[in-house]
Design a binder for these strands. Structure first.
Length: 490
RNA sequence: CGGGGUGUAGCGUAGCCCGGUAUCGCGCCACAUUUGGGAUGUGGAGGUCGUAGGUUCGAAUCCUGCCACCCCGACCA
């Protein structure tokens, strides 16, 4: 059926790569580990940005932009932070090239930087260095800043969208007068992410906290949303960190309270990246290609005319010219593909591959009967409907698709949260059913690492509002008060 | 950084062992017939065979160095 897409069941990883390439989302660049995000893929990112950006503004944040380069000394100021990122930093050491006399361009060794610059893997340090100058009084708080940026993490292995050397993201950085406010902010932004994932991406997520071992370098607490992909592996879709006073202390950011006391401010940081596009692909798509939730689809409706003569095309086009404004008035993005260079069957396949939620096909027969053929991408069902009130019908269908995609993913997710009560059971689940495994854990990093070493499964999170129950750790047999979610992860 | 691959037209490839400047498919261009699920025919364009050396009368092919990318592992969002 679908040309050139490996079946999901045959090779999930290859299926994913095929979709990214064939749906024209991105391609490998000539730069190792870096991708080119192509226009269609980028427009999905733009849609995500637009929604998230509005949500950030609605919660009081302002956008700003900080430098790509961070002086090495800044990094050294927060011990856990530098340790966490040290192994994956690109470093700028020189600022000039020269011709070596043989026609080769080489680094000019005389142009060595006094202090090396780190290409930001995240911006806490440069931002907190800057915040020092922005905060003096409680009146300056809370400071709620977001930036849209690229970052670089020198990963050893990369995968399109899921892990690339350079990627795009947003990072929020906030400063507060009290610990409680900073924690509330951390939780608020986690909710923003969860809401975005569930209501826009149609991606059900588990809200939770990371274990000490999985925590962000420099944070006191890391919250996350975890999603489940169709192959049963988990993917972290967003994180929000309570940073305590770690960075405020490292960069000496203090404020005077109403009572005249001087104290370090409290901080949060939070981010989501282009990795979300990877999540979107892996959560919903099928062997025919990408499946996009209508709310994030760059093109929500495509109209394909089927005609034999110019007169027939003109007839259809006249109808479409009246339909398109009605759809646009309802906020629906629509494309009329009247290219004469491709045949209808080709277009059908192409838009399915690209995940366009609704296809409208109109031929001579439809024009006679005052109908159109509607095809929905999620179920691949087709129906013939009246041209009368079509825009309303389509708007409803888009909502229905959004809902259906979510429900399908939710059912899958719920069916793939399984309790394990022994290590044998745990291992059998990992190798068989996969998905999240809810199991008792003794709370030690030692046990967590042992399990990871032996099974490659990690603790994805301790769900928020987790049910408390007595039990014993599946690995050590020590007492435990709650189950945590394990999974193999991306 | 270890292990494994690959580099030949825009893409995917054959040829390499056994040296004689290159195969096939897709795509592209033109024209015609087509158009309700990835059209067909005819004609055509397109290549410093990753790169630098070496061996040879002659190198995609043999030898050496280099570069790049992909996959698997350790690391990670």
């Amino acid at each position: 059926m679908s040309k050139g897409i490996t079946s999901k069941n045959e090779d999930y990883s290859q299926w994913y790569n095929d979709i990214v390439i064939k749906a024209d989302l991105a391609e490998h660049s000539s730069v190792k580990g870096c991708m080119v995000i192509k226009p269609y893929g980028y427009s999905i990112w733009e849609k995500m940005q637009a929604v998230l950006d509005q949500k950030f503004k609605d919660t009081g944040h302002s956008n700003a932009y900080f430098p790509l380069f961070i002086p090495k000394s800044f990094f050294s100021k927060e011990a856990a932070h530098v340790e966490g990122f040290a192994t994956e930093c690109a470093v700028v050491t020189h600022y000039r090239l020269k011709n070596d006399g043989n026609g080769n361009i080489i680094v000019d060794e005389t142009a060595k930087l006094e202090e090396e610059l780190i290409v930001r893997p995240t911006s806490e340090t440069i931002i907190w260095n800057t915040f020092k100058g922005w905060v003096q009084s409680y009146r300056d708080l809370p400071l709620l800043i977001n930036q849209w940026a690229n970052v670089v993490r020198w990963e050893m292995r990369t995968r399109l969208f899921l892990r690339t050397t350079e990627f795009l993201w947003q990072e929020g950085h906030t400063a507060h007068a009290t610990s409680q406010e900073a924690v509330e902010e951390t939780e608020r932004m986690l909710d923003v992410y969860a809401d975005f994932a569930e209501n826009w991406m149609a991606l059900p997520v588990v809200r939770g906290k990371k274990t000490a071992n999985e925590r962000f370098a420099g944070a006191l607490d890391t919250y996350c949303i975890e999603a489940l992909m169709q192959d049963g592996k988990a993917l972290q879709a967003g994180t929000s960190h309570f940073l305590g006073q770690n960075f405020a202390k490292a960069f000496d950011v203090k404020f005077t309270s109403k009572e005249g006391k001087i104290d370090h401010v409290w901080a949060s940081s939070w981010g989501v990246s282009t990795r979300l596009i990877g999540a979107l692909i892996m959560a919903h798509s099928d062997d025919a290609g990408l499946v996009l939730p209508p709310k994030l689809a760059p093109i929500q409706v495509v109209i394909v005319p089927i005609y034999k003569s110019d007169a027939a095309l003109e007839n259809i086009s006249n109808f479409v010219d009246k339909l398109m404004p009605k759809l646009k008035a309802l906020g629906i993005s629509v494309k009329y593909d009247d290219r004469d260079t491709q045949r209808p069957g080709f277009k059908f396949a192409e838009y399915e591959l690209k995940g366009v939620p609704v296809r409208v096909a109109i031929g001579a027969r439809d024009m006679e009967n005052q109908t159109v053929e509607l095809a929905r991408r999620d179920t691949r069902e087709k129906q013939t409907v009246s041209q009368d009130g079509l825009e309303i019908h389509i708007a409803q269908l888009l909502n229905e698709i959004q809902e259906n995609i979510y429900n399908k993913a939710e059912t899958f997710r719920d069916e793939h949260i399984t309790e394990a009560n022994s290590y044998e059971e745990f291992q059998a689940l990992l190798d068989g059913k996969t998905g999240f495994i809810a199991a008792h854990w003794d709370g030690t990093t030692e046990t967590e690492l042992k399990i990871k070493e032996e099974t490659k499964a990690t603790i994805r999170c301790i769900p928020l509002n987790n049910k408390q129950e007595e039990g014993i750790c599946i690995y050590s047999g020590k007492p435990s008060t709650q189950r945590v979610l394990f999974a193999r992860a991306y």
